[in-house]
Design a protein around this nucleic acid. Structure first.
Lengths: 100, 100
DNA sequence: ATTACATATCGAGAATTATCAATATATTAT
DNA sequence: ATAATATATTGATAATTCTCGATATGTAAT
């Protein structure tokens, strides 16, 4: 993922907010109902509630962020959980450090 | 400058190219005519030539980058020279490291 | 003062991104 | 099988960004 393409993903407050919230799910989201913890991330519906955006926009943003390598999505039953992809986020920061 | 605002500036190939070219002006631009070296940066007209964009777009992008803190512009006579603002670029990378 | 040139700003249309409602798909419960 | 629920995808409009030509401003030469 190039700097330009990654920057496009990061040039939106909602998406940067999600990334920040997912640093500390316990603090930023209510307890999950259908799984015991946040190990696989946060349920889409919780993220949508907090964003205050429509379901379709929320889903779109999350999959865009996954495609960019910022998030990891996991489907469990009817639900999809998203968490940060720390490895890739770190790689991006490294590439910025050297390329920018 | 927030991550979102800075990312907007970086989400364009032309602007990221300029930033990269200015890392090594001697290599990426012809010698300057009206000043002896690249100490104050590169003349707008050289950047415009290399970008292949219109004069107005080039000027717009450069001032946008200066406003974001990525570049430093210096007017000398009729010409304006732009160079990288290394201090601010480094600060941005640091803030990404902690906030992202 | 006038002209010439480099850059900046303005105004407008084209291209892209944001965002929604509607619909489709996947999964579970009945 | 059917219904219910969560998420994904599609199609459309609104908002933003891109990009240009035209014009304005600043500086130097005549």
């Amino acid at each position: 993922m190039s700097i330009v393409e990654m920057s496009k993903v990061l040039s939106n407050k909602a998406r940067v907010d999600v990334l920040a919230w997912l640093k500390n799910p316990e603090k930023n989201f209510p307890p999950q109902v259908n799984v015991p913890n946040f190990d696989d991330g946060v349920c889409v519906c919780h993220i949508q509630n907090k964003l205050g955006l429509s379901q379709s926009t929320t889903s779109h943003y999350l999959s865009m962020m996954e495609k960019a390598g910022l998030l990891i999505g996991t489907r469990i039953g009817k639900w999809t959980y998203y968490k940060r992809n720390e490895e890739q986020i770190e790689k991006f920061i490294q590439s910025l450090s050297s390329e920018l």
